[in-house]
Design a protein around this nucleic acid. Structure first.
Lengths: 266, 266
DNA sequence: CCAAAAGTGTTTCCTTTACACCCATGC
DNA sequence: GCATGGGTGTAAAGGAAACACTTTTGG
């Protein structure tokens, strides 16, 4: 549909809506799940924190609009993220100016370069989702609801897909991947069992055998301990889709503290 | 937001969209999952099959609009269904007349009285989803995509919630509930194991102990065999939410044909 | 009587869990 | 050496699947 097209409908029957997209961009930082927020530079809610977003253009696809907002706010280039529709929020009165229907998206990025306000954002910052879940951050519009829904959806999807890999660089160690799950559910997983599960899931494949060679390039800098092999998502894996991950179910039964080795006289 | 409100935005910056809802209404009929379709009485796609739907009113909530369409098309009264948002479909050009963003919903009804065309529907009919999955029915707009997504979502939700009960009357036998799963996945489940799973899930509770009394009222008419107890969803069960159903996972491993009883000399 | 549906009992098998333990590195 | 993270082995516990069997009805 080209710009300049004329509409042949009667506005009385077909009321005009403004359509926006809002994007919840997640990343792992400081071993915690964080979401990108911007400080609003315009009314309403001037000065409040909100999700990045904006109006959909008349000839623009919805996901395209979300990707555009995401790129504007982070400076990242297309394809370096996973972007998916979350749901649509359109209660009358959610925006005091006009009737707005907002299509919410959520995204996973391995890292989010926080850009100083692009567009109408006064500032941008990564915020731990735990802050929001505890109600310690006041968000504009119904964005708290959107963030809560997005977090739930993210956790849900990580349980049965290989999407966790999108929180990591293209090649990663199994330990890095484990730390994603540990951050998202704020829990601890058994490294040995996790190792096996990743290997046997078929969703990942080993790229670089562990070597003593200096891990150059984009590989994670060795810190300590035995060098790890680097893995990536298998060619055939559809990130987005089930069934991928028979990993340890992170949120289900919380792991008990390690038990002492039983004494001989037991 | 009251009718007659004036908008303070510039249509150049905030282009006007038409917003519609489309509803995929599912029910079980003839032991098969079926979806309600209407035959379009207007252009475009005059005469084609489509999902029930229509324009959202300017002061109407999205779910309210979906419920209104559902009630108009089925004659059912509010509350007798489960209605949930599916996703939003808004590619430019999906409607040749104008730029439309459609918020799709899906619903479960225990039974769907097929009403002759309400509104702009020439006719209405239940159609087995298998017909659509096999591409044997041509649908208007992008409604085939919506139906496929809705079916997938329905199957997914039945796996981990107690929503299957919404395909049954308020009180139902465990056998009725099993037949829902069997219809939705077109499979056979072990009656004994299913029985136990329902009882132990905690999501349901027994209402009426099996009796020889004539099953009057809305109770299902006894057909054959031993009378069954009637069950309903437990007070505390949140239908919509996990975790409810550790039932047999219907689509996963397909059940093998029953094996013969091993002979003694085996 | 037989067929069919409801409901219970039981065995077998497979997966998950909770570790123990060895390996390779930095300090 | 010692702490730390990578990676493998394994025994025990728990749960799912298969199916025999009993109960109660209609025809």
């Amino acid at each position: 549909m080209a710009p300049g097209v004329t509409y042949d409908y009667d506005p009385h029957d077909y009321p005009p809506f403004a359509v926006t997209v809002d994007v919840a961009v997640f990343t792992i930082r400081d071993d915690a799940l964080q979401v990108l927020l911007i400080e609003r530079g315009n009314e309403p809610y001037l000065g409040a924190w909100a999700l990045p977003g904006g109006f959909v253009k008349i000839d623009e696809d919805l996901e395209q609009a979300a990707a555009r907002e995401l790129a504007e706010e982070t400076g990242l280039r297309a394809g370096s993220w996973h972007l998916e529709q979350l749901g649509t929020y359109g209660a009358p009165g959610r925006d005091p100016r006009m009737r707005v229907v907002s299509v919410a998206y959520w995204a996973i990025c391995a890292e989010v370069p926080v850009v100083r306000g692009g567009g109408d954002a006064a500032a941008a910052a990564l915020t731990p989702v735990e802050e929001i879940e505890r109600g310690r951050v006041r968000l504009a519009f119904d964005h708290e609801r959107i963030v809560r829904d997005a977090v739930e959806r993210t956790r849900s999807k990580l349980e049965y897909t290989a999407l966790a890999a999108k929180f990591c660089p293209p090649e990663f160690t199994i330990g890095q991947l484990r730390r994603v799950y540990e951050a998202v559910w704020n829990t601890r997983l058994d490294p040995g069992n996790f190792q096996r599960n990743v290997q046997e899931s078929g969703a990942f494949e080993k790229r670089i055998e562990a070597t003593s060679a200096p891990p150059a390039g984009s590989a994670p800098p060795a810190r300590r301990g035995r060098p790890a092999s680097l893995w990536s998502v298998s060619e055939s894996t559809v990130l987005d889709d089930r069934p991928a991950m028979p990993l340890e179910r992170p949120p289900a039964k919380r792991r008990r503290a390690a038990r002492r080795k039983p004494t001989k006289d037991e």
